[in-house]
Simulated scan of single mutants.
Amino acid sequence: MTDTTTNPGERRRTAAGIRSLTLGETKLTFVPDGQATLNARMLLPEPSEEFWAEHADYLDEGGHLMASVGSLLVEHDGRALLIDAGAGPITMGPPLNTYGVITGGALLENLATLGHTPADIEAIAFTHLHADHFGWAWHPAPGSDRPVFAGIPYLVAESEWSQRHFPEAQGMADMINAMAPWVRTVAEGEEIFPGVTVRYMPGHSAGHAAYVITAGGKKAVAFGDAFHSPLQIVHPRWENTFDHDHAKSTRLREDLLFELAEPDTIGFGVHFPEPFGRVEITDMAAWHPVDA
């Protein structure tokens, strides 16, 4: 697994770089696009000041949680799929993002580092329609009026696409309209790529989806924004201000923890500082990054 940051405290408050692991004949790689600095107390309003003092290694000097922004590259037998498409070459702060600042723009460069161009990607599958997950799907490519990935299928859960009025009402209507010509909706349980199936996980957004990758006798769950931070692994019942439906999100997190704790199961958290990991449940659940 590629990982150039070794100090655990630094890793918890640093956006992830390129990191890879292999399941059988399938390779999974986190492709960074940028980072988000999120107001920790606004994102997770329930923890006490004492909690944040005890977990200061997750925060920068301004009290922000540092989150990764990017995509998951799935490679199998010469084929390539992206799950999510980063924020794109923009910076988003208030008023669209009232909880901090999200920056993107590095995805294509990092794809090139991995030996890929946009032409190598056969489809992009989206966990949900929030701007930090579909940026490169709508933003015009330099010198063009079309996105750099235009022409390939944009796979969106039917339940999310049919309820796109929710993100549109949050200021993303123009972005969603720009990607609409290439959208193809996908159903629960549909296999969209060898070993990759759709799993509906509503809660964070009205039709939020995850993608389950099985290969080599192992399973990886790309759970999108079911969790934003490893701290939610320990405290799954804490409300996340970003969530569309708090009750559904809480139930989902609790159920998902038990699945991620199963043998030969790996989680992928796109916003985690250490995006690949396993869950261990003793007295409490804990996220253990996969380092090799």
Rank of each mutant, 00 (worst) to 15 (best):
K219W: 02
P236T: 07
F149I: 02
L252P: 00
Y200R: 08
H288G: 00
E274A: 14
M284R: 15
I124G: 05
I18N: 00
I233D: 06
P118M: 07
A137L: 02
P45G: 07
G135W: 02
G143T: 07
V221F: 08
A220L: 15
I281S: 07
P167T: 08
V234K: 14
R184N: 12
S249M: 10
F272H: 04
A141E: 14
G115E: 01
G34C: 07
A53T: 14
T26V: 12
K219C: 11
E158M: 09
R19H: 13
P47I: 02
L38R: 07
T4I: 10
L59H: 06
V101G: 01
E10S: 02
T197L: 05
I192S: 03
V221A: 01
Y200D: 10
E61V: 04
P147N: 12
A16S: 15
G70L: 05
A226N: 03
V279E: 06
F193Y: 07
E61F: 01
S162T: 14
A36R: 13
Y99G: 13
T197W: 04
G224N: 11
G207E: 12
M1C: 05
M42Y: 00
A209W: 03
A53D: 12
P45C: 05
T250W: 01
T185I: 08
L111E: 01
E10Y: 00
V221C: 02
H204A: 12
E75F: 05
F51V: 03
E61T: 10
A106K: 14
L114Q: 09
E239G: 11
A53G: 12
R199I: 12
D255F: 03
G93A: 13
P94L: 09
P118E: 09
W138I: 04
L65N: 02
A206M: 13
P140L: 08
H165G: 12
P32V: 00
G189V: 13
A292I: 08
T282N: 14
D243F: 10
R253A: 09
N240V: 14
M175Q: 15
A106W: 00
I192P: 04
R184F: 02
L111H: 01
